[in-house]
Write a protein that binds this DNA or RNA. Structure first.
Lengths: 253, 253
DNA sequence: TCCAGACTGGAACGTTGTTCCAGAAAAGAA
DNA sequence: TTCTTTTCTGGAACAACGTTCCAGTCTGGA
């Protein structure tokens, strides 16, 4: 009987690669990186391993597909568009394009950067996964996707074409590095109470840094206080602006 | 008999946390991330799991210790000092300090950055591990170590103290992001023949990018050619200079 | 109606991180 | 010396994981 119900359900919403990836993302979001196992996946999808392996080669490919799906939504939409994180693909011309005319290509960069930042905040597992993905196979779909999204805005900047690659690389590297590290704050405070847990977390780190050896860590102790009240997004944007300032200072004059 | 030899050897060079971490680093270097298993570790150290677990809590802590050891050597020595990557700890005042007088605090930043870059090139597993380590527990020893090393140079720059944290964060994030991604090139060409394999690798990526959809990826296709002949270290340094230029443009005047 | 191919899921395999514990080796106490 | 305690070891075993195998179901077309 249970089989009958499951079977009819199976053909109603048949198992597809998209449904598997979607379930994988949900599992990663709710249970963390270690929560995504084929056992949990089969249970959630009410199926067996063979069915999944028919659509997906192995776990690495599944993680890649999940990463790609989330990144695609992030670079297409921009920041704070919370829903539909696993939509299949980005339209050729992202909506974020609407943001700027001529001079505000910088705003475009900021927008895409914030989109990725927010995506990592929403999906903390992205931080590690992006590092793995980008360094293991740069010929995959995720690297070009990010590169294209940032690079398009860079080319609208006042930068000679010979420097496009360098400038875009620098921006992408900063964005991924910063977003990756900052993701932890929200990851630690996974549960509700966004403000409280977060302040508590920063407080813990700050006091831990203040108790370091004064001889070995004078600087870290000196700035430990600054970490206490800082806003992640603001700080992240300040970094983007720093790089952008460097770009205009170096190239535009 | 073999037991007798092993036993006397055991007390001669007893199993210690340092020896375990050292073996772990060697295993990671030679066999990659997946090569570090407790089975391989017990075999290499001629011991059992219990002995290792007496000194190390679990694999995560072992990976953290390995990362910390390599990072400590990297930020202390600076670039291209290939030997003794697992030396215990950095002296309070790193030798890299010798490099600069007043104005060349920028060179200090460059030196530390290159030190980390080279470390990741020598130990490709560092890329993923740093991302994991930094995002999972920023209160660990590795984050303050990097932060201190960069931050000390930043404070020697002409930057108001209120911006120390922001500037240092931006630099660290770029360095880790860039070094992490660039590590792949050497990782792919693990074997000998440094120049040939590398050119071949870049060629593969370049052609792959050139074959992307012209409508969806115009920018990536446009810069695909630039990737072919580029030098990683040079490009990495160009990014550091970009950030440094942004710092002076923003703060110093 | 039947068939070929798409698709499924239960059972099982090898490997992994980790635990358990009887006992050896070193250090003090007598 | 001899006994006792603490530090430290390593073989055996466990649960969980990714993955494979394959007998079988389902579905669209002939």
């Amino acid at each position: 009987m249970a089989t009958r119900t499951r079977r009819s359900q199976r053909r109603t919403q048949a198992l597809s690669r998209e449904r598997i990836v979607e379930a994988a993302v949900e599992l990663l979001d709710t249970a963390g990186e270690s929560g995504l196992t084929f056992r949990a996946l089969t249970e959630r999808l009410a199926t067996g391993p063979g069915a999944i392996y028919w659509h997906v080669a192995n776990k690495e490919e599944l993680l890649g597909a999940a990463t790609d799906a989330v990144v695609a939504a992030a670079v297409a939409i921009g920041p704070s568009a919370a829903t539909a994180t696993t939509s299949p693909a980005a339209p050729a011309t992202p909506p974020a394009e609407e943001a700027g005319a001529a001079g505000s290509a910088q705003d475009g960069v900021r927008l895409v950067a914030l989109g990725l930042f927010d995506a990592i905040v929403r999906h903390p597992w992205l931080a590690t996964q992006l590092a793995t993905q980008l360094s293991r196979n740069p010929w995959g779909t995720v690297t070009p996707r990010i590169f294209e999204s940032i690079g398009r805005r860079v080319s609208a900047l006042d930068v000679p074409e010979s420097s496009w690659f360098t400038v875009t690389s620098a921006l992408v590297h900063y964005i991924l590095g910063a977003a990756g590290q900052n993701a932890v704050n929200k990851a630690g405070a996974r549960t509700l109470a966004p403000g409280v847990d977060r302040a508590e977390f920063l407080d813990t780190v700050s006091t831990a840094w203040e108790e370091l050896d004064p001889d070995e860590y004078p600087f870290t102790r000196a700035v430990a206080e600054q970490i206490r009240g800082h806003d992640d997004r603001e700080q992240f944007l300040a970094g983007v602006d720093l790089v952008l300032a460097g770009v205009t200072a170096t190239h535009h004059r």
